[in-house]
Write a protein that binds this DNA or RNA. Structure first.
Lengths: 218, 218
DNA sequence: AATTAAAGTGAGTACTCACTCATTAATGAC
DNA sequence: GTCATTAATGAGTGAGTACTCACTTTAATT
């Protein structure tokens, strides 16, 4: 998802057309929030960067916080998108042998999220920063996690445990280990050391190996 | 390290006594920065919470940012402390068999950092939040990492690779995987789900297993 | 008791903040 | 072209901001 897609999606969600100036505002807000943080960014600054009068911001968004939420909310649902698809679970029960399926699942999971973050680094930055201070964001992600991500993940892990692909760890521990390893890689790759000379394919390969071997029988 | 220790250490570092009111200021600042974030916290609020006049803050700290740095700086060096000790590397070359040594090393590493974070959750919160926006903090941690943590870690990994305890991953990849797994666990444990019903010993045990198996021969 | 230095105060300063509102410009239907 | 609706403006507002400074209190030393 690039920024254009985000804008389209936002306008679809609200069933309102986004004016060119509004789009400029969103773009400027993303940029500035990401660089300086929400609290340290003034609406005046956003208006100037967007080439717009300050009042225009408040024509479209009741408050500064409204603007933040309109930016952050879509990325939560987009990051969790693979878990909404039927295919995610179906693949796990296909005819291939379990080893290859597990490998492929991890691969798809990482590559999907990799591409998503790659196109949305500033958004992810804002999200990670502000999640700590805004209950609305925290609640939304907790809701999506418990209702969508966790149950699907659980199904899959149980299946692979039955097939002997995953050792005798508790299901919740497996989910924690897999998620922190993947998210840890992505954060290191795009936020901690974005300028490092990464061989992405190789790192992803090693990360998958690490997870698979790490989860094998204890 | 609890807060008392922190204060003692700060006074030792500056070779200046910390007055009771100054201690109150630090305590109030940690609390408020942690809850609302640095930019969203006013000096007036800190003063009120500390039961002190606003001017007193600026008697001890030139600027609000100075106050932040005086709080955040010590935790960087303290988190990296095990890597400063000679013992850290020496243990790796002891007489025990490599498997037990590796296991014990991971265990010590996690338990140390576990206890440290447990006693300093608000400080860690502030640190993680503000590292993104203050170059001084970023530079300090990068310096400590490249000069202290990374070289020691590298020595150890190479040694265990030679002994066959770690498979044929690149050294940097090993360091990344180990660090993100440990830090990921600690962040999940204390920041993401601090109220979850954790069986800490068990989770640490599983995490070590996960790392050891994950790093075995590919 | 007198002197000195440091700690503490809080009203005051210049400035910035998010947000409002009366006014003007642009758009589209007929 | 007229008119009605929506978009955009930017000066204005009161509350809040980090920080200063002239002054008072406290504590230690002689």
């Amino acid at each position: 998802m690039n920024e254009k897609d985000l804008l389209e999606q936002m306008s679809e969600a609200n069933e309102t057309k986004i004016t060119p100036k509004q789009a400029k505002i969103i773009q400027a807000a993303i940029e500035t929030f990401s660089e300086k943080g929400y609290a340290a960014t003034s609406t005046k600054e956003i208006a100037e960067k967007a080439g717009v009068a300050e009042g225009t911001i408040f024509r479209h968004y009741k408050t500064k916080k409204d603007l933040l939420l309109s930016i952050v909310s879509p990325i939560i649902i987009n990051f969790a998108l693979p878990f909404f698809l039927e295919k995610f679970v179906k693949d796990v029960f296909s005819n291939e042998n379990s080893h290859d399926r597990f490998d492929e699942l991890l691969q798809k999971l990482i590559y999907n999220r990799f591409e998503f973050i790659k196109d949305n680094v500033p958004l992810i930055k804002i999200f990670l920063q502000e999640i700590a201070f805004h209950e609305e964001i925290e609640n939304k992600i907790k809701q999506i996690y418990t209702k969508k991500i966790y149950p699907r993940f659980k199904e899959v892990v149980i299946q692979y445990k039955d097939e002997g692909e995953i050792g005798n760890y508790p299901v919740d521990t497996v989910i924690r280990l897999v998620m922190t390893t993947i998210i840890g890689f992505l954060i290191t790759r795009f936020l901690v050391l974005p300028n490092h000379d990464w061989d992405d394919e190789k790192e992803i390969h090693y990360t998958i190996q690490f997870i698979r071997h790490g989860l094998k029988n204890i």
